[in-house]
Design a protein around this nucleic acid. Structure first.
Lengths: 342, 342
DNA sequence: ATTTTTACCGAAAACGTTTTCGAAAATACC
DNA sequence: GGTATTTTCGAAAACGTTTTCGGTAAAAAT
């Protein structure tokens, strides 16, 4: 019942553990005959190297850690999929942890992963994370760290992001192009970098088109969990406070879907009375009525890119070669659907 | 930069590694003075035990494996969340792999996890899995295995499921209760146990109510990926082939949403002309129009239950106590919404 | 004062690998 | 046949921890 070890193979063949180990790894200093003998016996005995022993010796775990704010989220589960798939290709396993948007938990989890001696960490920050010592600690411990989506610009490491600012600019410009004059923005949480960037893109588009920026048209919400309700709530507020608004750029599709459902209920016509652009291209956005124009945010691709970069850094570090941090910016594109199709 | 080891602490205090180790684990045979000395130094040096070494020595990895068919799926990502949360509470980490509904991949991944010496495995089977040797291998290697949702009844291990048959029965009975006479069933894939059970529940409800079972009313689809399209396609077929159908019990909410959108487009009134019950209580089902009646399938709860059972078995095995496999059946409930509200 | 007990510590083996380095055996060369 | 070279192998150390088992010194008991 106990797993087979090198020693057992060695004993059965009356050779040393050393030779067995070398034979299995095709060292040049072991004869073809013994090599084949060893390999044969290893497969018949179904020998599997003990990962702990290998890791202890080689200081590699062939495992990486992934920390994300929420797992149950279309964008993040797509990223998970991308990372796991790419990692598997390279023989790496992925340990996934969920920070629940909590800075404290995030810190603890980084610790957990470091103790586990993962070879690297991929992270998307919790909204509440303002202090970055736990992250610089990782880097100082000489362990590769890649941030994606929700990043901290100050931290010096590789990042995989989209150009949130440009994407938001494109979305807003699109609303302007179809004739919107008073454009609101549902911004979501205040802190995260991409919330900031999307807001800046929105404002830039306005000013580039000579439209005055009106702060009262920007709706903020700190309720992290029920985005759908957030959309409905903001839509209700908007209908009370700003009847003249004819276009909204919304931070994320789920919120947009909530808003649409509220507008539908109130009998407000989309896009005739209010045009809407969402963000992330959730598959439901092509399904609801009216279908939602949105920005395509390539989750799987981001995941793959993040792992690829991490992998590169792991390899470089191993060879003691200098690593230079990359800022990988993936392309987004505007997808026009009925919610802006006049 | 190198992590601190027991030896370094020992050298700094001029005591042995043994004593340091014991002090940190509160062995009775080390004096309070040295204990506090060691502990203090350990925290100031930020000592973290090397997980590999510990694992090698203790044969525990404090890590479990999770294999699921797809990550990007509301039900499964909820299960992930439940498992990860519960595992973290007990100090366990979770390695997640996605089988992509492929038997071959599933087999490989089991192998990967066994090599990694995880302490246990939680799995939901791929649709294509018909041979179970890779699973019995796990059990024979004396490693705890818990299956959930998509299980194999033949395999002798603990399982966490819902009573699919009863749930399907309830759903169908509900359709009958509101007056449906010709009830179709979108069954999805043919193989998985829960597809079979749901079908049986559907049939039982019919016969218990004296309604003839008509095989042509059961729609099967092997397209694993685009459930939404499957719903639309089946709806189209149904409208052509069986204009007299007045109720459908649909295997999963996403397919149901597809069907609803197709019926909406065709101008067929729900529930007046066709009543619909879905399955899983995806959050979107309370959002679309009309809102969808469905069976609540508690993903997070299932994940938690699965880990709890696995944890129990890990502990029992460690103490060499006999483990008895549990079949944990979680409660589902029918949620009535507009799609069956006459 | 001697023996017994208790309290405290450490040497050493073990977990299963990998890798260095030297030695032995086989082969080549003159 | 003797030397030089190449093949082929294995002993041993190392990775960092845990745990068993003795051993010593001090404290308690006789």
């Amino acid at each position: 019942m106990k797993p087979v070890t090198l020693r057992e193979i060695a004993n059965k063949l009356n050779i040393s553990v050393t030779t067995v180990s070398k034979a299995l790894k095709d060292y040049p200093d072991v004869s073809p005959k013994t090599k084949s003998l060893v390999k044969e016996l290893a497969t018949t005995l179904n020998y599997k190297p003990n990962a702990f022993a290998v890791n202890l010796r080689t200081r590699e775990s062939k495992t990486i850690g992934l920390i994300i704010p929420v797992i149950v989220h279309h964008f993040f589960s797509n990223v998970i999929k991308g990372i796991v798939a790419q990692a598997e290709k390279k023989g790496y396993l992925v340990i996934i942890l969920q920070s629940n948007e909590s800075y404290e938990l995030e810190k603890k989890q980084i610790d957990l992963l470091m103790n586990q001696r993962v070879d690297g960490i991929i992270i998307s920050l919790a909204n509440g994370t303002l202090d970055f010592k736990h992250l610089t600690d990782v880097i100082n411990a000489n362990k590769p760290l890649v941030m994606f989506d929700k990043i901290a610009k100050i931290v010096n490491c590789s990042k995989v992001i989209i150009d949130d600012r440009k994407a938001a600019y494109d979305a807003t410009q699109h609303l302007i192009d179809i004739g919107c004059k008073r454009i609101a923005h549902f911004r979501g949480s205040l802190l995260p970098q991409n919330s900031i960037d999307r807001f800046l893109g929105y404002r830039k588009a306005l000013s580039d088109n000579g439209i005055d920026y009106d702060p009262s048209l920007v709706y903020i919400c700190e309720c992290d969990d029920n985005s759908f309700e957030e959309g409905k709530e903001n839509a209700r507020l908007l209908m009370q406070e700003h009847k003249d608004v004819d276009g909204i750029f919304i931070n994320t599709d789920l919120v947009a879907v909530g808003a649409i459902s509220e507008f539908n209920k109130a009998g407000i016509k989309i896009p005739e009375e209010i045009a809407i652009v969402g963000f992330s291209n959730w598959f439901m956005s092509s399904i609801i009525s009216p279908t939602l124009s949105t920005i395509d945010q390539p989750g799987v691709k981001m995941g793959k890119a993040a792992f690829k970069q991490l992998y590169k850094e792991i390899k470089l570090r191993k060879r003691n070669e200098p690593v230079e941090y990359q800022q990988i910016v993936l392309k987004t594109k505007l997808i026009q659907r009925d919610s802006t199709q006049l």
